[in-house]
C-alpha cells in the first residue's frame, strides 16, 4: 500500500492521488502538464531551501512553487 506523504524528499518517486484544488484554471494547468491522478512524479531539483521544486513527470521537467505542489495529494510508491 502506498503511503500518503506531506513532505517531499529529493530523488524520490511519488504517485499522484488526486488534485486537491477546485480552481478550474489550476486543475487544467495540472492536467496539461501531465499531472493527472495515477501519474508518477520524481523530484529532481530543490531550490531556495525547498521553496521551489523541479519534478520529472512523464519524462519532462516541470517547475513548481511549494504551494502548488501542496495542491496534489501525493503517495510514496511502496517498493514491491
Amino acid at each position: 500500500m502506498d503511503k500518503l506523504v506531506s513532505t517531499l524528499a529529493l530523488g524520490c518517486e511519488y504517485r499522484i492521488g488526486r488534485i486537491l484544488t477546485r480552481e478550474n484554471k489550476m486543475r487544467h494547468r495540472f492536467i496539461a502538464l501531465g499531472l493527472v491522478p495515477g501519474a508518477t512524479l520524481t523530484t529532481c531539483y530543490r531550490l531556495f531551501r525547498g521553496l521551489y521544486w523541479v519534478v520529472s513527470v512523464q519524462h519532462q521537467y516541470v517547475g513548481f512553487h511549494w504551494s502548488e505542489l501542496q495542491m496534489l495529494r501525493l503517495y510514496e510508491i511502496a517498493e514491491s
Binding site: 484554471k25 489550476m26 494547468r29 502538464l33 519532462q60 516541470v62 517547475g63 513548481f64 512553487h65 502548488e68
Partner: peptide, 11 residues
C-alpha cells in the same frame, strides 16, 4: 490572487 508558477521546462 496569486499568480501560479507551474512551468514546463523544455529540453
Amino acid at each position: 490572487s496569486q499568480s501560479c508558477l507551474s512551468i514546463s521546462l523544455p529540453k
